[in-house]
Design a protein around this nucleic acid. Structure first.
Lengths: 198, 198
DNA sequence: GTCACCGTAAACCGATCGGTTTCCCTCGCG
DNA sequence: CGCGAGGGAAACCGATCGGTTTACGGTGAC
């Protein structure tokens, strides 16, 4: 490979725009104007409207772009061979850690879905898809652990996740073990103790 | 009593404004303009800025005004003499019922706090205060039921409440028993079975 | 060399933003 | 009857909204 991206372009215009969008929309809400966004991203409005048909599409695309990083932040590494219970609680430990930071504004997907209101908004579709991915992770681990109803447990854990996020946002302070404790209580209620016994 | 409110004034200007504000801000978000709000409320901007110093104060005041109705919708009546577990689950049954309606947009307090972003925004203070009221209800019932750690259980139940709300918003469909099941699981994990035995 | 492409800068559009001000009408009350 | 307060209608303010357009610059491929 020579240099298909000519070395003087460290990131594409599209990526620069979407990275700035993800950060701005998360920090200040999707209500920020496209002038402010393009100024921050160092991208002209012309380029933006060449890449995307509307601001709504930019919102959705920026959510989509930051999704892998968000999942990597929360989920345990693939080579983590701890038992399912530990892998599940890992997510809540990470949530508590990020919720303790002063610029925490809750789950970006939930925030976007709440702000745009419409369930048909492209950003809502992205949010739904990514919430499903988190639930799917929980379900796989619940299955591995031999839960009686893995799908139910997974949805309860997703509720604990989003509820903990909301709590941290409204109370404007860290969770102090509450998220982990709630997830653990749900695991206990489902009959999953520390020893998965398989 | 003669007629202190002169019969030709079914509701005050202030109440008309705040009722319209609560409905509009919930349905479309706090981003709606004051022109649209005043048009809907049948109140002039002049009157609005005489009653409130800024739009932010209107947002906070509208949340404050609808709070009693919201609590009445969720909490069991005072003369309900069912055991604590049933009174707690009552809240989640009501949540599921309202989440099934197509115009459900989640908890209005959480939505407002998420939208305004700033924890110091007057609306965030109102949201915090009202979330604390729900947690306080849970804690009172948990104490009555003899929970080992009523404060912890109450916060877990609040998490289940907000998480269920978020789930319904993101998935854009009803909860189908999930909220009640999650709350019940938390009650089970806390050792509170159907019989409070005191 | 030059041509085509990608991108920026900036003007421009009508509409709306939060907020202020002026004018006028309609009451209740003395 | 007169008067003052309350409140609606609407003009007005500068700024910004989402979105389009024109004009120009730099750069790689041929």
């Amino acid at each position: 490979m020579t240099h298909p991206t000519p070395a003087a372009a460290p990131v594409s215009t599209r990526d620069r725009l979407l990275d700035a969008a993800a950060e701005l929309f998360y920090r200040e809400g999707v209500g920020v104007g496209i002038d402010a966004l393009c100024r921050r991203a160092g991208v002209s409005k012309r380029s933006m409207y060449q890449l995307f048909g509307s601001k709504d599409e930019v919102v959705a695309a920026s959510l989509d772009r930051m999704a892998p990083a968000y999942q990597a932040l929360l989920l345990p590494p693939a080579d983590d061979d701890r038992p399912p219970r530990a892998r599940i609680l890992h997510v809540f430990e990470r949530l508590e850690k990020s919720a303790a930071e002063p610029d925490f504004r809750g789950c970006p997907f939930v925030a976007a879905a709440v702000e745009v209101k419409s369930p048909e908004h492209p950003a809502s579709l992205v949010a739904r898809r990514n919430k499903d991915a988190l639930t799917a992770f929980f379900r796989r681990e619940a299955e591995r652990a031999g839960a009686a109803d893995p799908a139910l447990l997974a949805r309860q854990l997703t509720i604990a996740f989003d509820g903990s996020s909301a709590q941290a946002v409204v109370q404007a302070r860290g969770l102090d073990g509450l998220a982990v404790a709630t997830a653990a209580a749900l695991l206990d209620a489902a009959g999953l103790r520390a020893r998965p016994e398989d």
